[in-house]
Design a protein around this nucleic acid. Structure first.
Lengths: 228, 228
DNA sequence: AACGTTATTGACTAAATTTTTAGTTAAGCG
DNA sequence: CGCTTAACTAAAAATTTAGTCAATAACGTT
């Protein structure tokens, strides 16, 4: 027994859309990623996400079961580009400058392209999520460990200053590369135009960071006179 | 005509609490600040806040009218410690090292003590809030502008390297000082113990940052041999 | 061309959450 | 004291929002 009468068959959707499941899922995931990043899990609204993807809320349930399912899907997809294969390339470089440049470049690119992901990660870590924690430890920790070991070795070789903890060197490197992305909105409010974001500006900032790293950490014997 | 019968007069509150409006408000604001910082505006639950402050949800409405009112109150209170009087002290310093140390120390202290505030600020800026934007421009911009001007002057005096934009110098300084706080949870997951947070660790990090800044930005003529 | 599958929709429900309304008690003041 | 005000509680209305159900139409297959 039907619980209600079949609403008079509208001679269908005014806005008929071609059927395309993968495309629809992608649109949903995109919208969800933005929403979750901006408002956090609890603050995100399914209706908002569905609207942004221009589908009905129900489709979310159809594809991802429930809100958590969507969230997990977003995280998994967002986290997958956390491939650090790039690191292997770096390994081949021999001297600090090339190493630093490669590392900084990789970091900046990652931060520039995955701000949503990182916002979510921050949220998750504050909320104590073990999922994200595990993924990070699996994918990023090896890179970080290798980077630290590499710094230590460079110190032993006398290429880098030895009076500073190698971990600190890495942290400071990451700080210089990443902070402007993380706090970009704030910086731009406080100092208008402080963090421009064209490709050219990015390159310029990369150069500045690398030069600063060289000056800060290269052993004095290796210091070249600052070019003017 | 009473809409319902007066519940039998409990011979009052089992959990009797002295009436103390200001104290209650403070408890509410504290709880709200934490909640808003952790979950964002939409994700925050009034009931959670009220419970944390051990009062009835309704009291929030009594004092702050509605959720937005509470939010505004939190922001206004949280933002008020953004006093940068400290800066005037710095002005008195003469050379870069003292200046840098003072600036870095101020920054680190601020970040350490106001992480909730900063989380909220990030949220608000992403959401495009003009309230926070205005407050920042009013309170922080002058400091930043002064800092940049000061760097420029030091460059003219030949104390600092001139081949780098003074704004960049300031941004990098802030990066080094602040990033570990912003991304502390992530860093600690990736490299366990990377960012300890005792007073001693803080001091150590401050020293490291200042030393790095000196090496990176002091003009070569002023370089002292790195101490071992 | 009939047929089953599934992407997609629109109306609806159940639960959670904010807001309102009514009532109770403590405290200050004449 | 007695009276007014304001702090606070309890219940319930109003609103949001996640999740369900049945219907419909596009698509691939036979």
């Amino acid at each position: 027994m039907p619980r209600r009468e079949p609403a008079e068959p509208k001679l269908n959707n005014g806005g008929r859309r071609k059927r395309d499941a993968p495309a629809t899922q992608k649109r949903l995931l995109d919208a969800a990623e933005r929403e979750f990043a901006e408002r956090g899990y609890a603050g995100a609204r399914l209706h908002t996400i569905a609207t942004a993807a221009s589908v009905q809320t129900t489709l979310i349930h159809h594809y991802f079961n429930d809100k958590q399912g969507l969230y997990r899907a977003v995280i998994e997809r967002a986290v997958s580009p956390m491939q650090v294969d790039s690191w292997n390339l770096l390994r081949e470089h021999q001297h600090f400058e090339a190493l630093a440049r490669g590392f900084v470049s990789m970091l900046m690119r990652f931060y520039a392209e995955h701000q949503h992901l990182l916002a979510i990660v921050r949220h998750e870590l504050i909320a104590g999520s073990t999922v994200v924690r595990d993924i990070l430890q699996e994918r990023i920790t090896p890179v970080a460990t290798a980077a630290i070991a590499w710094m230590k070795e460079l110190q032993h070789q006398g290429a880098l200053l030895a009076d500073i903890d190698p971990t600190e060197i890495v942290i400071m490197t990451v700080s210089l590369a990443a902070y402007p992305f993380v706090e970009g909105p704030l910086l731009n409010v406080v100092v208008p135009g402080a963090v421009p974001n064209g490709a050219a500006a990015l390159q310029r900032r990369e150069d500045a960071v690398v030069r600063t790293l060289m000056r800060a950490f290269l052993a004095p014997t290796q210091l070249k006179p600052a070019s003017r």
